[in-house]
Amino acid sequence: MILYVRGTLKEGDWVDEIHGTSSGFAKAAAEFGAVIAGAIWRTAFLEPGQPGGEIHGKAR
């Protein structure tokens, strides 16, 4: 799975052109956390082949 987080960090969320600030990394981590939590929920509560098992949001 690839999680597209480009554009998540805005001006002010960067230390320099490569490194995010702590709050910037927290924003990216929140995106990952939401996708991971959704995947865990789907795995735990949906039967195989049941609708709703697809990943939504920014995950690709």
Rank of each mutant, 00 (worst) to 15 (best):
E11A: 11
I2N: 12
S23I: 05
A26N: 06
K27L: 09
I36E: 08
F45K: 15
Q50K: 05
L3N: 04
E47W: 03
L9R: 01
G57V: 15
A37S: 09
W41V: 07
R42V: 10
K27G: 10
A34P: 08
L9C: 07
E54P: 11
G49W: 02
K10Y: 00
D13T: 04
G7Y: 02
S22Q: 07
L46W: 03
G7W: 04
G53I: 14
G12L: 08
A29C: 14
A34W: 10
D16E: 04
R42W: 08
R60A: 15
I18V: 11
I18N: 01
A44F: 14
F45P: 06
E47D: 15
E17N: 03
E31W: 03
F45G: 09
A30T: 02
T8N: 00
H19Q: 05
V15F: 06
S23Y: 10
K10D: 01
A26H: 03
T21F: 01
P51A: 06
H19G: 05
A39C: 12
A39S: 13
A39R: 11
D13V: 12
F45V: 15
G52E: 06
G53S: 15
V5H: 00
G33C: 08
A26Q: 13
G49V: 10
I2K: 10
D13A: 13
R42Q: 15
A37R: 07
G24V: 02
I18Y: 05
V5M: 09
G49H: 14
G49I: 07
L46A: 03
R60P: 14
S22L: 05
F25M: 15
V5T: 07
V15Q: 02
L9D: 03
L46S: 03
A39E: 12
I55W: 00
G53Y: 11
A26P: 07
I55V: 10
E54I: 05
S22D: 02
G33F: 08
T21R: 01
G38L: 12
R42F: 13
I40L: 10
Q50F: 02
T43Q: 07
G52P: 13
I36C: 05
D16P: 06
L46R: 14
W14Y: 08
Q50G: 04
T43E: 06
Y4E: 14
V35G: 06
F25V: 09
H19N: 07
K58H: 10
A30S: 14
D13F: 00
E31C: 15
G52I: 13
I36T: 09
D16G: 04
Y4N: 14
Q50A: 15
F25G: 03
F45S: 09
D16M: 01
G20D: 00
F45Y: 11
W41P: 02
R60N: 07
W14H: 11
A37G: 00
K27I: 05
F32E: 09
F32R: 06
A44H: 09
M1R: 03
I55A: 07
R60D: 11
G12N: 06
Y4D: 13
G38Y: 00
R42L: 15
I18G: 03
G38N: 13
E54G: 00
R42S: 09
